[in-house]
């Protein structure tokens, strides 16, 4: 399969297209980050909506030298899955901090080129009190009119001041620069532990935005299995988060009103 693709280089990342990425209204970016909320939410969408991967994303210099094997078939470490007007970008490896700016530029440009209406970034918002919370709260950060409309529909908890660090901060800045609507969905979560319950809240929000039914029951039932599968990715992500100054998120910003 890897040899039959059309190859296109976008900002240092190679996109191997096995099919034309068309009719993607919502591009969900689910990268490993706080509590692996984005990764788990993306994985669940792909499985529940039976999405298929049509684009492989790779870089020989910015990513570890890996090939992912799925059902005996070699795959690229970052992949775009599509179905029901949604695209989901998932990665099996955390992207090293020096490569993040290039990746953020690349993914926003890809969204622009393929007329995506809204980029949806999914992440956790680390809370030291998460263990006491039954249903984690959803927070949003919107850039662009489309993003604001969707954010209002979700009726999220208010976040007035704070600092966002990591890949989603870079994607947001690039989205502002390139006038691409971007909605960041942040769910209260554990920081260094995979959090399927928080991911379920994100999936509910995503299904509301995209207008598709996604059952989160299975995600909660299989929580322990998921934690076992994602253990190594969580360890690597913890390492990456420490390097990119993720602890900035846990201090208040300088200016407040």
């Amino acid at each position: 399969m890897l040899s039959r693709a059309i190859e296109e280089e976008i900002n240092g990342f190679n996109y191997y297209m096995f099919d034309e990425p068309k009719d993607i209204d919502y591009l969900v970016v689910s990268l490993p980050d706080v509590g692996l909320v984005g990764s788990i939410a993306g994985l669940h969408l792909v499985r529940e909506l039976e999405m298929i991967d049509i684009v492989g994303i790779d870089s020989y210099t910015a990513l570890p030298p890996v090939v992912v094997i799925q059902n005996g078939e070699p795959k690229h470490p970052i992949r775009l899955y599509v179905g029901k007007g949604i695209g989901v970008v998932v990665t099996d490896v955390p992207i090293a901090p020096p490569a993040l700016p290039m990746f953020a530029q690349s993914i926003v440009q890809f969204a622009k080129m393929n007329r995506v209406k809204l980029i949806l970034s999914v992440t956790g918002m680390g809370s030291p009190r998460r263990i006491e919370v039954e249903k984690p709260r959803l927070f949003t950060l919107a850039v662009g009119r489309e993003a604001e409309i969707e954010a209002n529909r979700l009726n999220p908890s208010k976040i007035e001041n704070g600092i966002l660090v990591g890949p989603y901060a870079l994607i947001l800045k690039e989205a502002i620069r390139r006038r691409m609507p971007n909605l960041v969905l942040m769910v209260e979560s554990f920081i260094d532990l995979p959090d399927p319950e928080a991911a379920a809240v994100a999936v509910e929000a995503l299904s509301k935005i995209a207008g598709v039914e996604v059952n989160v029951g299975k995600l909660l039932e299989e929580a322990e299995k998921l934690k076992l599968r994602l253990k190594e990715l969580m360890k690597e992500t913890k390492n990456v988060m420490a390097k990119m100054g993720k602890t900035y998120e846990y201090r208040p910003p300088l200016i407040y009103t």
Binding site: T61, A62, P98, K235, E236, N239, V240, K243
Partner: peptide
Amino acid sequence: YFTRMMFGVEELYEDR
């Protein structure tokens, strides 16, 4: 530039 980039990648796998 590439050394910096690959150094970050290698470090990721030391723990594993």
